[in-house]
Amino acid sequence: MGVKVTGTVAAGWETVRAEFEAVVAAQPHSPEAQLAVRHHGRTVVDLWAGEDTDGETLSGVFSITKGAAHLVVALLVQDGVLEPDRPVVSYWPEFTGHGKERLTVRDLLAHRSGLINTPEGFTIEELADDAFIAARLASAEPYWEPGTAYGYHAFVIGALTGEVVRRATGRSIREIYEERVRAPYGLDLYMGLPSEAQERWKPVLEALPTPAQLEIQAAAGPMPELLPVAFNWHTDPPMDLVAYANHPLVKAQGPASAGGVGTAAGIAGMYAAAIGEVDGRPALLKPETVAEFAKLHTPGLDRVVSEPDHFGLGFERQPAVGPEAFGHCGAAGANGFADPVTGIAYGYTRRRFGFPGGPAPENLPLTAAVLKVARASS
């Protein structure tokens, strides 16, 4: 028996439901997935599928959290509180040595610092503490000369940019996000899960790769040299990503790189609020702020994940959508983005970790189905 798809779509969006049903049916194991879409602020898709997942199920969303953290940074830049072209050290005096003094906030947001980890790595308990990460990295030696290349700072970027925010404002990214973004819109996307939402939390589930997937992975050859370092797999034993997402400290403290907990509806709601009017509130970001944070800041190849032209400022670019779109994926297979051209805000989650990790391939047909309807209605 196949996994049942439940939820609603607005009139005209039935093809998105059909595509979601198709991608769920094609999975060898239940993905325990949610899909939510807003169009010009209005919810048009709210679907879920799984044996133990509904539309309000909360679970770890990994690097989707980076989108929430860097929405806060974008707001602070827009307010004039942070200046992207100021050196990081002018906010954070301890951020010194090995050429780090020349690194700007813009460079830091574009994953250009080289501080992807330390040779000894971190425990999960340490990765749950952004202040601890920032303190250790402040005087650390980068893996490349700062500002000369870029690579995905998978588990530390939120601690680094968060420390700049703390020095500039006296408050954490988590506090500002809660006050200015999550609470006003009632979003189910948390940096630190509150007690009243605990009963809706369910764990991220282990990947169950098929033999064909394992063969494809083996044929891909060795992983890029710095990828194990950035993902804390150079420790002994290597860090377990599923254990990280489900760890009580990560869930409670919501580290800004990858420790968030949420739903697809919460993700879509955040991106809808970023680019347009929602419930009578104006867009959080002005068009010029959106343009600056979405535009390409990293031409060339990412030294960690070997992805070309990867980042804007803090946000991942969304090549399947368009150059104006911005968002961030999550390791279990999730993705979230905003597209100011079509007015689309998209959220997709899955509790079943998608092998081998990163944005699950079903995001491509789902995104295409959403954009087809949006573009036809404009």
Rank of each mutant, 00 (worst) to 15 (best):
residue 6 T to W: 15
residue 7 G to M: 15
residue 16 V to N: 01
residue 20 F to I: 11
residue 21 E to I: 06
residue 31 P to Y: 00
residue 36 A to L: 04
residue 39 H to C: 06
residue 39 H to V: 02
residue 49 A to S: 08
residue 52 D to Y: 09
residue 53 T to K: 12
residue 66 K to E: 11
residue 67 G to Y: 07
residue 71 L to K: 07
residue 71 L to G: 08
residue 72 V to C: 07
residue 72 V to G: 14
residue 73 V to E: 11
residue 73 V to D: 10
residue 73 V to N: 05
residue 78 Q to L: 11
residue 85 D to K: 10
residue 89 V to W: 08
residue 91 Y to W: 11
residue 99 G to F: 03
residue 101 E to V: 04
residue 106 R to A: 08
residue 109 L to R: 02
residue 111 H to M: 14
residue 115 L to T: 06
residue 115 L to G: 09
residue 116 I to F: 01
residue 117 N to V: 01
residue 121 G to T: 10
residue 124 I to Q: 04
residue 124 I to G: 11
residue 133 I to G: 07
residue 137 L to M: 11
residue 138 A to K: 03
residue 142 P to H: 02
residue 152 Y to T: 02
residue 159 A to N: 08
residue 162 G to V: 09
residue 168 A to V: 14
residue 170 G to N: 12
residue 174 R to I: 14
residue 177 Y to L: 12
residue 179 E to N: 08
residue 182 R to H: 12
residue 183 A to H: 10
residue 184 P to M: 05
residue 186 G to H: 03
residue 188 D to P: 01
residue 190 Y to C: 00
residue 192 G to K: 00
residue 202 K to E: 03
residue 205 L to H: 05
residue 205 L to K: 10
residue 206 E to F: 04
residue 222 P to S: 03
residue 223 M to C: 07
residue 233 W to E: 14
residue 233 W to K: 06
residue 234 H to L: 02
residue 235 T to V: 11
residue 238 P to F: 01
residue 239 M to L: 15
residue 241 L to G: 01
residue 244 Y to M: 02
residue 247 H to W: 08
residue 259 G to H: 04
residue 262 G to T: 00
residue 266 G to L: 10
residue 266 G to C: 07
residue 280 G to M: 12
residue 283 A to E: 15
residue 283 A to R: 13
residue 291 A to L: 09
residue 294 A to N: 03
residue 302 D to Q: 03
residue 303 R to S: 12
residue 304 V to F: 07
residue 307 E to D: 15
residue 311 F to T: 12
residue 313 L to D: 11
residue 313 L to M: 10
residue 319 P to F: 14
residue 321 V to C: 11
residue 322 G to T: 04
residue 324 E to N: 01
residue 327 G to C: 03
residue 328 H to T: 06
residue 328 H to P: 05
residue 335 N to V: 09
residue 337 F to S: 04
residue 343 G to E: 02
residue 344 I to S: 04
residue 346 Y to S: 09
residue 350 R to T: 15
residue 353 F to L: 12
residue 355 F to K: 13
residue 357 G to V: 13
residue 361 P to A: 02
residue 362 E to V: 14
residue 362 E to R: 10
residue 363 N to K: 00
residue 363 N to A: 04
residue 366 L to P: 11
residue 368 A to I: 11
